[in-house]
Design a protein around this nucleic acid. Structure first.
Lengths: 273, 273
DNA sequence: CTAATAGTGTCTATTAGACAGTATGTT
DNA sequence: AACATACTGTCTAATAGACACTATTAG
């Protein structure tokens, strides 16, 4: 039909295809500290997620993950980077592709396929830099056999959603997730959140991702708590210290003034063998 | 501006956005047996991938992964399913989303974002069912520090490509892959192949995915070889048998006629504790 | 002194690695 | 008998889990 690739391309007309768009959604996760009454007790930690309030239709007034349309002249991964920078005003945030959602009616406007990304950050880096429509929500989740309930709250709003999980097939532990209750989160973002939490939970076991959520200097107690929050279980001190021993290095600094034995500050070790 | 979501949606015009399309590419992997001269020796196994020859521009005449455009009224995951069924004429193939590629110039026709999927199958299920433009290629890969060379061959054609890998950041072992040599494979498909191999290599360690590539009944020797091919290293017999012991169950059948002690046939055990 | 966390020593249990041996078919 | 793979026993090394103990601060 065509004599050459050049000829073919000149005759090629994208207008012949149906319209569809691509967006990216960003699940920015961090760790929050909850102040406790007793100054001697260590503060309780939570995972937290950054949400933005929609000031446009659709889902006007609801909360959702930061996201936006991919531009034609923009690399896919530059899209979440651009949005993340807009919301947080900092660069160099850990970013990793999560999953691409492509349900037919996920967006009421038109057919939209969305690639979600997970980003991790130390919240303290963002002090006073957040966009005005953005807010951190603490995450609490209750993972039963075939249902997960997630509660997000930012001390003003509380958002709850419930998701049913059914095993897809028997050889892996991949689940099909369905939103069965969701009043307050826009789009299919509950799925993105769950997906990201699962990913992070797995990843902490065989990588050093956690350190993307830590400040430059930290105590091993803090670090352990972060692992515990992500893994959703208590760890034994000696075991934990053995495991992270060659990921971190001692500094000359200590953290004092907490009503108990001061804690040595560590930093992430770059060239571990 | 708009009084309601309904009003907003009625005024919404998708035509205002630039055109872009979505495709899915499928990396169908399987295991091939290579006949050996000596009838007593067990046949050598390889990973193999299904490629199709392009009979249209662009990349006319080159080999590529099976793939195609997402239709507007089609769930994202139904797209690879549809294509897979077209090429193999069977359903129920293990399918898992791999990664979404969105480089600006990955396709000469227009801006195309592609979500890749990995599929696994026992090749014997496809005997005489393959589409005429499809062919299995054996995979051999050589993984150096910062370069991977992959050689694909189907006994007629041999396709070679080389990829440079550079660590993205220090906390995980995620790499940025760049194609630095590729004569014969269309699009950025070398990246999809590498991505899939990596994924599979990781996944065999903590799931039972391998069994998607096995026939109903198999010997432990065969199973071990499949693990070895995927992991690209020899395993010790007793250790291997310990690990898979509660994933499989003995059957009453044996495989005989191979010039040595017959081997018991096992099957994948469904309800392992 | 007390409450609270920091940090370590050590014993045990489980899992992974290595090697050598025995078993049993086909030609 | 010889070859080739099937399959098992057992010793050792490494890793993970559990518990109990000592250390050190602010108030």
């Amino acid at each position: 039909m065509y004599k050459s690739e050049k000829e073919f391309l000149e005759a090629y007309n994208p207008e012949e295809f149906d319209r569809l768009s691509i967006t990216t959604d960003i699940l920015l996760l961090s760790i929050s500290d909850e102040e406790t009454a007793n100054y001697r007790k260590t503060s309780k930690k939570h995972m937290s997620v950054l949400l933005v309030k929609r000031d446009d239709y659709p889902f006007k007034g609801k909360w959702c993950l930061p996201g936006g349309f991919l531009q034609v002249d923009e690399e896919l991964e530059d899209c979440p980077k651009r949005i993340l920078e807009k919301e947080t005003n900092i660069k160099d945030i850990y970013l990793e592709q999560l999953y691409t959602f492509g349900g037919i009616n996920r967006d009421p406007r038109m057919r939209i396929v969305s690639t979600s990304y997970m980003a991790l950050v130390d919240k303290n880096r963002l002090k006073d830099k957040l966009a005005s429509n953005a807010s951190w929500f603490n995450i609490k989740y209750f993972d039963e056999d075939n249902e997960v309930v997630v509660v997000l709250d930012n001390e003003i709003d509380t958002l709850t959603f419930k998701i049913r999980k059914t095993l897809k097939e028997k050889t892996t532990d991949r689940y099909k997730f369905e939103i069965i209750e969701n009043e307050s989160l826009a789009f299919d973002h509950p799925l993105v959140i769950l997906n990201g939490i699962e990913r992070l939970k797995n990843k902490v076991n065989y990588t050093d991702v956690v350190f993307n959520m830590m400040p430059e200097l930290f105590t091993l107690g803090d670090l352990q708590q972060v692992y515990e929050v992500i893994l959703n279980k208590k760890l034994l001190d000696p075991a934990f210290r053995r495991i992270i021993a060659n990921k971190v290095e001692k500094t000359e600094f200590v953290e004092r003034g907490a009503g108990h034995r001061p804690s040595v500050l560590f930093r992430y070790k770059n060239n571990q063998k």
